[in-house]
Lab assay of single mutants.
Amino acid sequence: KYFGTAKARYDFCARDRSELSLKEGDIIKILNKKGQQGWWRGEIYGRVGWFPANYVEEDYS
């Protein structure tokens, strides 16, 4: 189950295995919004990890 999707506004390079690298334009499935302050958990291309919420724009459609 996921909470919708978000589109990456910027590139983000994961610093460890718990984080999710993003490329601008990627569409991420949002799995959890209750991580550390400002971090969401998501899935993209079969990978799961945490990413900074301010790097994405949530899709409300």
Rank of each mutant, 00 (worst) to 15 (best):
Y55E: 03
Y45W: 12
Y45I: 06
G25C: 01
N54Q: 10
K33C: 03
K34Q: 14
G35K: 10
S61P: 15
S18F: 14
D11H: 05
D16K: 10
V48A: 11
E24I: 11
K29Q: 08
E24G: 09
L31D: 06
G46L: 04
I27E: 11
L31F: 06
K7S: 07
E43R: 08
I28W: 04
D11Y: 06
E57H: 06
A53V: 08
E57P: 00
I44F: 09
D11N: 15
C13K: 10
Y10V: 10
V48W: 05
T5W: 10
R17E: 13
E19A: 00
I28F: 02
G46C: 02
R41K: 14
F51L: 02
R47H: 09
K34V: 12
K1D: 06
D59L: 11
S21V: 01
F3R: 11
T5A: 12
G38E: 06
Y60M: 14
Y45V: 12
Q37G: 14
K33Q: 05
A8K: 00
F3A: 07
G35V: 06
L22C: 06
G46M: 01
Y45M: 15
I27A: 07
S18M: 08
D59V: 14
A6F: 03
I30M: 05
K7G: 04
C13F: 14
G46W: 01
S21I: 07
K23G: 02
A14M: 01
G38P: 00
D16V: 08
K23N: 04
Y10M: 15
W40I: 07
L20I: 07
K29H: 12
R15C: 06
R9G: 03
W50R: 04
R15S: 07
E24T: 14
G46P: 07
N32A: 13
F12Q: 05
W50L: 07
C13Y: 10
E57W: 05
E24W: 01
D26A: 05
V48L: 07
W40S: 02
D16T: 11
W50C: 15
V48I: 14
G49L: 00
G35H: 06
R17G: 13
R47M: 07
G38V: 05
I28R: 00
K29C: 06
E19S: 06
G25Y: 00
K29W: 06
